[in-house]
Amino acid sequence: MSQHKELPITVAGAGSVGCYVGGLLAAAGRNVTLLTRPQLAKAVREHGLRVSDLDGRDITVAPNALSVETEPDRALGRARIVLVTVKSHDTAEMAALIAAHAAKDALVVSLQNGVRNAEVLRHTLGHDRVVDAMVPFNVVQTRSSGGAPRFHRASGGTILVEKGDGGLRALLDVPGAPVAEHDDIEAVLWGKLLVNLNNGLNALSGLPIVEQFGDRRWRGLVARQLDEGIAVLRAAGIRHAPYEGVPARVFALALRLPDALFRLAAKSIFAIDESARSSMWGDLEAGRRTEIDHLQGEIIRLAETHGVPAPLNRAVLARVKEAERAKNGSPRLPPEDLNGAR
């Protein structure tokens, strides 16, 4: 692949992660188009967008530094690279739009949660056009009247893409959103899914992740979910890679430490901004459908197939579904409400 920085890149379904990555690509001189919702498109056209991170980076990308579109034909028709950042349940619809409007040789990269998005994209677009990838970090979106919407990376990590010719990695690798190749992206995605099981718990708690992890009762629930997930993947014969260098079992052990010891261990395991909450919390607050079926749902489907119990994952899925239907935001449950799931 050409590494030329003028190669047109469209971020398809640009929300928090898409605008953060797209904003940094534009700031680094890449030719970027955001395909996004009308309200966000209007704000970016008028004020640009602001990208910041927990390392102190804070950049405002001017409106004329990137293109913003709300119509798929206009956004996708010009693309040579399409970065898919929609929720997992919207992947099939986005694949159909890409097939209808993008060039037949446009390369498509999945920057999404879950483990099956590339498979869905390939079903419509073909195997050779799709590259799977994993985004490790959390992005918090805030908007203020009359100002540029802000997209703040609230945790660390390197975007991993499946191993290829290196041109894609070089094109996407920019300050603030580093990219590296990995030769077993499927194992990487399963490792990320195990960590992402906390998204549901965090959404139900309504707490910032730092505050949630400061409570040993919540950490115990996170560890139990990890234990269930690890047992299910072992029964299914599925490899899962360490997440940011930390094996899932080590993470589960660290979560069970007393508070003082956990705080010491956490400094070497992960860094996270005090403002960070899971994207699933944001979905509940906005009354949107969540990705719970693509996280806990994956573990539960495998558990049923292989006869492995996963009661806590089942309980979390059921409570998130209840909250989705209620459309009252996070239910802000105490941990005791889920402790009985055995």
Rank of each mutant, 00 (worst) to 15 (best):
M1C: 02
S2Y: 10
Q3C: 10
L7E: 14
P8V: 02
G13L: 08
V17E: 12
C19F: 06
L25A: 01
A26R: 03
A26Y: 02
A27N: 14
G29P: 09
A41Q: 07
G48L: 13
V68A: 02
T70I: 10
D73V: 06
V82Q: 10
L97S: 14
H101S: 09
V108R: 07
N113L: 07
G114I: 02
R116N: 09
R116A: 13
N117W: 12
V120K: 08
V139K: 04
S145W: 06
T158A: 13
K163I: 01
G164T: 04
P175A: 11
D183F: 00
A187P: 08
V188Y: 05
N199Q: 07
E211P: 00
R224T: 11
Q225A: 00
G229D: 07
A231F: 00
V232A: 09
V250S: 13
L253I: 04
L255Y: 04
L261G: 04
A265T: 02
S268L: 12
S278A: 13
M280L: 08
G282A: 11
E285L: 03
A286T: 03
I300M: 13
A303K: 10
H306G: 00
P311T: 06
A318I: 01
R319Y: 06
K321W: 05
P335N: 08
L338Y: 05
A341I: 09
